[in-house]
């Protein structure tokens, strides 16, 4: 029954992604108005709190609030530093870690609504045979540090400086102010209030303008680039901080054919080229969202696995690879619409 409904891991993931998108965007209409308290206020995914009918689940909001309202202000007042500073932060990190412990970076690949939207848009691009651009080694390494800058500057530093009274309150949660998920998920509920820009305040206007430009860019870019925002998302870097502590992980064994094959790298929506040439801990890269595509498209038995602790959740197999390749190329191109491209991985193994 399960295999009939979900013949591939990709199909199962798509189902989970859409279910999570519905849950995080519309879920409160089903499970009750105060859904955030039931789910969490610190879900490590970009499930935005701005819509009035939506939940407040994004861990980045909690983090910015802690730095802005508690740590910064407590430092500024120089009072009760230990309890007012560290305990709340510890609680947030523990909450974050609790969820991370269950699914780890799979929150990015399976739960995040913005990730799902980009995935769906890219599937449309593949369906209509639009060009697909991959970032090669040189460029991908230039983009990777941006997510850390986003985390350090927008999620950590500016809220803290605001709490200290150095930067204005308009910079209390700057990441949320530029987050394209805020625009996307509120638009999905039919609300245009988040796309409207505040006039009369230069900072708010500029942040809003950046957010809208970024959201527009991401929407179109996603047709031709896989997961364009995920590559610079601070949630990815936040998750990466805890990556090695989670039992949920990607495991790759050394294999002689890997150097010549490289199909797994072609399948990776984050253009992690290391997955093809590395093994062990290095193969589970900081950019990995645990989407599982590399496992699906690895043509050798048991070389790549998704594991939760000692439990193997999914592992590569030649038979699965053959079946998978019947409908889709590693880069996501639908077989029926794919022009023949040597080296795309279809018959390379």
């Amino acid at each position: 029954m399960f295999k009939t409904m979900f013949p591939t891991l990709g199909r199962f993931r798509l189902f989970v992604q859409i279910a999570m998108l519905l849950l995080t965007v519309y879920g409160s209409n089903v499970v009750g108005f105060y859904m955030a308290e039931k789910v969490s206020n610190a879900l490590p995914a970009l499930s935005c709190a701005y819509d009035q009918q939506n939940g407040a689940y994004c861990a980045l909001i909690s983090t910015q609030h802690l730095l802005h309202h508690r740590i910064g202000e407590a430092l500024a007042k120089a009072q009760q530093i230990t309890f007012q500073m560290f305990l709340p932060l510890l609680f947030t990190l523990l909450t974050f870690f609790t969820f991370f412990f269950v699914l780890g970076k799979a929150f990015c690949g399976w739960v995040c609504p913005l990730g799902t939207i980009q995935d769906l848009v890219n599937k449309l691009g593949r369906r209509f045979n639009l060009p697909l651009h991959r970032l090669e080694n040189g460029n991908v390494s230039k983009v990777r540090p941006v997510k850390w800058l986003m985390l350090i500057v927008l999620v950590l530093a500016l809220p803290l400086l605001t709490g200290l009274g150095i930067t204005p309150h308009s910079l209390g949660n700057p990441y949320c102010d530029v987050c394209p998920s805020r625009i996307a998920t509120t638009l999905l509920t039919g609300s245009t209030e988040q796309i409207a820009l505040r006039t009369g305040d230069g900072i708010a206007f500029t942040l809003g303008a950046i957010a809208n430009t970024l959201a527009g860019f991401i929407l179109i870019a996603a047709f031709a680039v896989r997961q364009p925002f995920c590559r610079i998302c601070p949630m990815l870097s936040f998750n990466a901080v805890f990556q090695r502590l989670s039992p949920m992980r990607l495991v790759k064994k050394q294999h002689d054919k890997c150097d010549k094959c490289g199909i797994c790298a072609k399948a990776c929506p984050m253009d992690i080229h290391e997955i093809a040439r590395e093994h062990g801990a290095k193969a589970f890269h900081e950019d990995c969202t645990l989407c599982g595509r590399c496992v699906e498209f690895c043509p050798d038995d048991g070389v790549i696995q998704m594991k939760w602790g000692p439990i193997v959740l999914f592992k590569s197999s030649r038979e699965y690879y053959r079946q998978r390749m019947k409908g889709e190329m590693p880069d996501g191109t639908i077989k029926a619409t794919a022009p023949h491209k040597p080296g795309s991985g279809a018959n390379d193994a």
Partner: peptide, 30 residues
Amino acid sequence: LGLAATLVLICTSTMAEDEHSGRAPVATEA
């Protein structure tokens, strides 16, 4: 992609300098 991300950083750092103008920053409702 890099430009989009850089824009975010440049603008936020610019804004950090654009404070204490004596005007109350009216935070957006959103």
